[in-house]
Design a protein around this nucleic acid. Structure first.
Lengths: 232, 232
DNA sequence: AATATTAATTGTCAAAACGACAATTAATAT
DNA sequence: ATATTAATTGTCGTTTTGACAATTAATATT
């Protein structure tokens, strides 16, 4: 019987930075930790990787368990593996960021877990290295969203250009010219204009759009230059 | 004494895809595996993450041990964690890709390990999921290199535009117009032209350039659009 | 019912970047 | 001296960008 003798073994966990958008601000979903140490402190959604699952499986399981949602946009970020990051026992954690439609979540809120949305800039201090994870996720979200049309994942199926516009500004923490933005985003050819208008936001109303799934899939790897290189 | 009861523990490893460039082709450095199972088969450079080191530390240690090189460009790729990827015992592996100056390595070749450079397209079948890792690394290298000036890492301190040009073509497996390429690459402002010329490649000779480290550091996060959008 | 108001959308335009392709240059080889 | 070769610099029409103006479609006000 072959074996890898005398190599140390570790716990492996996943932690998810769950991003949502309430129409005005970028938010993250946090939970009160349910086990010692640091019980009842705010933390990211996470859990240990089980014997019969991959880290990706584990992240999906954790999200399903805590939010009730399946098929969520999930992206592996990086591994956090400093030897002393968990005071109890060496644990490596795979960081993921998730983009979810905040309204979908609220619809099927699971009260078994004390979960709460926080404005990204007004979040409480988190346990362990979770603060660093959030900072990294924010950076990665910006990076990815500047090149790939992923922010749609945080909006309902039908959305308006102004909604998308605010979301882009929030994620990038900058002002973007509305006029240039709508032209650029429609020129990607990824949006299908619907007949219906959203009249809640303004007098004129803004047309709803939906995503062209085929083109979305086809453009998943291409670079789109969705963010302007602001001059001056 | 708090503990995380009854959670499974796993081995955690690192595997490195080491890229190099011989002036003509993109290559990867492989080693003959030194332990069972699959002993003497070709594999990536790897090792287990020790008790007192992070995965990043481990990757650097492995590279130092097997190539003698320190301070190598190393980037975390993703974790490979399918439950059955290692037949002996569950092992999760963090994949890294490394870019090294092939000549630097040859200079201090360490014969304790049977290491050999292979053309990226003529490599032998590798153990476990290492073939997938190489494919992923290639994709990620392309992605990153299209936006960030990292390919310099595979060239000597002094290099010529034609050298860089061939490297870009190799990495992206496409032809790039020489005339447009040299203008684009110099217009980034990242290169400093030296007085000396390389006369080995042609009659006219090509000027050597070196990297402007300051600007390189400043542009590490910016997008540069280094690859043309080939039309037709 | 006309008018003011507001936010969405479409227009304009100059500057910059892009990419196809030509011409020139600096060396060596004949 | 001339041919040859690869490096480099030029040219130019097209597309993209981003600053900013004008128009449009609705509701609210008078």
């Amino acid at each position: 019987m072959i074996e890898y003798s005398r190599q140390p073994h570790y716990l492996v966990a996943v932690d998810c930075i769950v991003f949502g958008f309430d129409g005005e601000h970028l938010k993250i979903l946090l939970v009160k930790r349910g086990l010692e140490p640091e019980i009842n402190k705010w933390s990211l959604m996470g859990g240990f990787v089980g014997a019969d699952e991959s880290p990706d499986d584990a992240a999906n399981r954790v999200l399903k368990k805590m939010t009730g949602l399946e098929g969520v946009y999930l992206e592996q970020m990086q591994i956090y593996g400093e030897p002393t990051r968990d005071p109890i026992e060496r644990t490596l954690s795979v960081g993921y960021f998730a983009l979810i439609d905040i309204h979908k979540y609220e619809a099927q809120l699971n009260d078994d877990y004390e979960a709460e949305w926080f404005l990204i800039n007004e979040r409480p201090k988190l346990i362990f290295d979770h603060n660093q994870m959030v900072a990294d996720a924010r950076t990665k979200l910006r990076y990815k969203a500047a090149l790939h049309p992923i922010l749609f994942e945080m909006l309902p199926k039908k959305f308006t250009i102004p909604q998308l516009h605010i979301l882009f500004e929030e994620v990038n923490d900058t002002k973007i010219d509305t006029r240039n933005f709508s032209r650029k985003i429609t020129s990607t050819g990824l949006l299908i204009k619907l007949a219906e208008k959203d009249r809640t936001g303004s007098k004129k109303g803004a047309f709803y759009f939906k995503l062209d799934k085929k083109k979305y899939a086809a453009n998943a790897q291409a670079f789109l230059n969705l963010m302007p290189n602001l001059k001056t």
